[in-house]
Write a protein that binds this DNA or RNA. Sequence first.
DNA 1: CATTTCCTTACGTGATTCCGTAAAAAACAA
DNA 2: TTGTTTTTTACGGAATCACGTAAGGAAATG
Lengths: 222, 222
Amino acid sequence: MFKKVLVAEDLDSISIAVIQVLEDLNIPTIHHVKYCDDGLLKVKKALVENEPYDLVISDLSFKTDHRKTQLNNGEDLIKAINDVQPQLKKIVFSIEDKSYRIKSLFNDFGINAYVSKGRNSMEELRKAIEGTFRNEEKILSSDLSFSFNDKALIEIESYDISILQLLSQGYILEHISNEFKATCITPNGTSSIEKRINKLKIYFKANNNVHLIAIAKDFGLV
Amino acid sequence: MFKKVLVAEDLDSISIAVIQVLEDLNIPTIHHVKYCDDGLLKVKKALVENEPYDLVISDLSFKTDHRKTQLNNGEDLIKAINDVQPQLKKIVFSIEDKSYRIKSLFNDFGINAYVSKGRNSMEELRKAIEGTFRNEEKILSSDLSFSFNDKALIEIESYDISILQLLSQGYILEHISNEFKATCITPNGTSSIEKRINKLKIYFKANNNVHLIAIAKDFGLV
DNA sequence: CATTTCCTTACGTGATTCCGTAAAAAACAA
DNA sequence: TTGTTTTTTACGGAATCACGTAAGGAAATG
């Protein structure tokens, strides 16, 4: 079983239970951080001391408070870890259940397992840890309804996300066009962007831009 | 100290820690439910058996799954409890940190304390339980930055919420006007609604309706 | 009762979205 | 190169939003 595990979780109410699971699995070294920044520091330190972690379990969303942080969420932390220790096994334990975001965790961030916080998640977490140790691939907790085969949300790409984000910040078409030209994103004509928004509206069955952004917010796309 | 406490929390990872706090306080009877419906049943049953609860600790958001439920969130549960046992002490323990929603819990639902899930929330929860037992009023965990004095979000009333909700559902001004006329909500002229939206845009510093809905979503108003 | 004030509604304009068509540009194949 | 297809961009008219002004009516005041 794993020898040295790092838990990144801000809520004390949850970290208590996660650590309990790790103790039940007889993991000898268990460390816990409440801020992503501290997590990266610990990983780096363990590396230079030649006692690297072999598993990290991280939440996605971290509360902001008085303390200034470089890394603000689990994605940031995982990205940073991938820079210094890419082969480190990663399990995400979060409330998030939007297929788009979870798929991106596997495909873009190379995580090994995703466990959604739910009514029976401690058991799921234990299974995910064991599966990850046995090098199983793309472990999903069983209460998630989607599979990796449905292409539905895969078609929404980062270009669409950019449009939705700028829209949600109050940009009008013309400004989005300018922004894209400034950052060399193509296509960037107002007409092309307009057409893309129209596709999104059809896809999400939205009546207008306002409706579209409301739906995008619900899907966690922005 | 309290004799009989009910915990309504769907996430097993959290309920474990909450129950631990209650055990540390030597509460003799601790019950735990993962669904709001079960919570109401337990409260009713305890009443008819003449052994009522004297405290309930509830989350706000509950995940939906295969099971069909009457009560879908903490607000529903508290409302239902207020119908059968209004004097029952109520503590809400949730991740929610939007002042608008928390204020409404105290003012409209008569809860006794609100503890926000955070990095040091078990200690806050313990203090809230003790304070509630001593009949202190309107207990807020200390990491919440707002106070009851700032009138900022109090001015947003249900009329505004209705408008925001219809907007987020893709309604155009004219349809909102019709909807208000149909349900006898005044004012209902397109112009009045327009003006009210304009106030909201100024208040939230939004450039347009799309921006406004994005902000409202972030604030948890819709 | 007259006056004032506030709230609601109506109306007009310019800006932006919405939605179709078509030209221009780019990518591709022969 | 030439022709074909696809993508991108441009343009135009109708609908809707955005925002100011003003008319009408209810409540408050004296």
